[in-house]
Design a protein around this nucleic acid. Sequence first.
DNA 1: CGTAGGTTTGACTGATCTCAAGTTTGGTGG
DNA 2: CCACCAAACTTGAGATCAGTCAAACCTACG
Lengths: 244, 244
Amino acid sequence: MQAKDCNVFEVMIAKLARLSQLGSDDRAAIRTLPVTVSELAANRPLIREGQAAGDCHLILDGYVCRYKLASNGGRQIVSFHMRGDVIDLQHMLFNTVDDSVQTITTVKYARFPASALRQVAQERPVVAEALWRDTLVDASISREWVMNVGRRDAKSRVAHLLCEFAMRRELAGLGSPERFELPMTQEQIGDATGLTAVHVNRMIRSLDEDGAIVRDHRSIHIADWKNMRQIADFDPMYLHGTAT
Amino acid sequence: MQAKDCNVFEVMIAKLARLSQLGSDDRAAIRTLPVTVSELAANRPLIREGQAAGDCHLILDGYVCRYKLASNGGRQIVSFHMRGDVIDLQHMLFNTVDDSVQTITTVKYARFPASALRQVAQERPVVAEALWRDTLVDASISREWVMNVGRRDAKSRVAHLLCEFAMRRELAGLGSPERFELPMTQEQIGDATGLTAVHVNRMIRSLDEDGAIVRDHRSIHIADWKNMRQIADFDPMYLHGTAT
DNA sequence: CGTAGGTTTGACTGATCTCAAGTTTGGTGG
DNA sequence: CCACCAAACTTGAGATCAGTCAAACCTACG
């Protein structure tokens, strides 16, 4: 990562500019936000359910997941987040947290007081609109996940997760969707798709045997996008990748 | 339904007032919105995937569901909506529609140009905040659905759906959560929970045999809330029912 | 090199689906 | 008001996809 990419404001501006046309005043307002940058090792809690909700967090580098625990002992990952994602915009408007966030890899993140972000949003309608769009995209992704977990078979679910991850990585400016390093374990993929780690393993190997992907440890090469899209039932429209 | 309850602006104001403290100016601004009220029979399309997204729809009476179709022929209902719900706030900010909405019962609804709603939101920050909160609540419900469909067994899923429906009905001012008429068929419950209609039937009967619910055709009496909550793994926090 | 976490594999189990038939219900037209 | 019909609900038996359990094998890292 280049020094320039580490600038928290530039990461945020790049993300919001993808969602709305930011003016120079909007960019300037974002740059006034008070911010703390921190780093956290892999597999550490970042936000815990029930905790007070006073800050918003922007991911600068690394990956995190949001999850919920079921009373039967199961865990469901409800979203993954990466560079440019503000993982808790809801803290701007709600005081209660009903799910938890933890790191998957080492993560560098910025923390803003929710009140400060809220004030910028009130003064700069374009910024508010971009933030709102971001929540709407997140909601759209959630709905697609309901579909994924509810109506697709195991192989499609895993394939869909890989396709989504590849596309979102690209949209976040992290490189080509064809080749990438998977940050999560097969257990975590299972928690995200409603499957067991054992079955995730079988499905990934099956995708490999089909020639849809080629693996080398955690590195994935989507060798046959057309086939992958079909197996995954993947239509990227729900990601609202191009500003509209 | 009383005449007063039919007033589209009062339904909208009641909903938004639950989410933010509306001033009299805010209420006045809402009342200036150009609006068309229509009625649609049960099982009719209200919004179709791929259609242009120029209007927003507020449900006044009856029930609708939002769904997606999988390439394997399956259908996943991703949300239910009732009185007071604006079902497509995303149309204020996106031009593309990636899922469909259809009526479950006869539905009375109001239609606003998205641009008009957007303008009110720009002029009245409190209204914008309330609308944003509404999207955040919807997103929170979606995440709970991912959990429901991904990590709970069949009986819990169905029980959870019933608990959520009961609570949301009450929050919408439609009466006690203990007794209500279910508007949806068992097939539709299956499409929402990722189960088949046959298995939904068995689970509902099983809840009945447990004494958790008592049924008379479509009318449900949640006879043992404590037991029901436990079976459903239901914690209403995610509904953000009380303004916060 | 030793250890813990992650991945792979196989055999068996079980929750849910599928298919198929029967019953009930609510609406409609005579 | 009754007869009919389509849709919804109910029930049973057999099939299957994914889960469980258990063990072996990597591999990264201290």
